[in-house]
Amino acid sequence: MVKIHPAGIFLSQKLLRYLLSFFCILLIVFLLPRMMPGDPVSNLVGEDIYLSQSTIDSLRAAFGLDTPLHEQFIRYCLQIMHGDLGYSYHMHGPVFEILISRAWWTLVYTIPSIIIGAWIGISLGARAGFQSGKWWSDVIASIALVISSTPPYLLSLLALVLFVYHLGLFPFKGFYDTYNLQSILYHLTLPTLVLISFYASRNILIMRGAVLTEKELLYPQFARSLGIPEREILFHHIRKNAIIPLIALIALDFGFLFSGALFIEIVFSLSGMGSLMYDAILARDYPILTGSLLIIAIFVIIANITADIMSLIIDPRIRRSS
């Protein structure tokens, strides 16, 4: 009999759940427009669009709205597997292409923010947790606590008022004035800083908490009794253990990067995927909304799988016990 590695069983169980939850999201996206009050055609293409009766009829046939629900669902799933997320009548284009063209801009500044935020969070949080009695450690933790209990859009609004309207240090809106690197960097500085402070403050809080818990355990005390310097205890022993809960969260940040950027993009008028979603909400452009939800869901699931694999690699306890 073939013996399957326990990690394999662990991963395949997880994978099954991810597939099921993607199926649930598909069901939500599929059922919502068809179950809501009103005409399903207008629920599917978006409100405030004038369509002639013949277009409505042909759309009804194209969506297969006269066929039974399960046939519609199979048809819908086949469409999505071919990368066809529908057609946006507000933006006059296929949803998939619109999303891809906007998503690049969001990735440009969210990925660096997550990475820098993770780096700041881990290094500052570890130090703040290790020397928790010091005044600077408390100051860092308090700032992080306040920032993370503020709704994300509020933080960006306050930054906008202070640095743009009041001090005039940064431009009002957009990704660039003239299309060159300097202009883009200038426009992206403030949104990136806000995003970094948001990610960093949450990471600091969690890292600090984890280090505070770990340092009371026996193994750091044993290391200390062996005469290992404090710095090495922190960086070679405690940090390795304390970082485990954070790894999953940071991986998830990558999954949620589009919805994380939503409020930043609205406040700073950056025309990335977040503001695309916002415009879609205002115009009730449902194809764009469902399309972005599906893309986000796929990203989140990939991020979850990555987090699982990484925790398997990093933490031998999961590998053995699973």
Binding site: G129, D138, A141, I206
Partner: peptide, 9 residues
């Protein structure tokens, strides 16, 4: 996740 409130707060 465990978060510790700073002592001076």
């Amino acid at each position: 996740t465990v978060v510790y409130v700073p002592s001076w707060l």
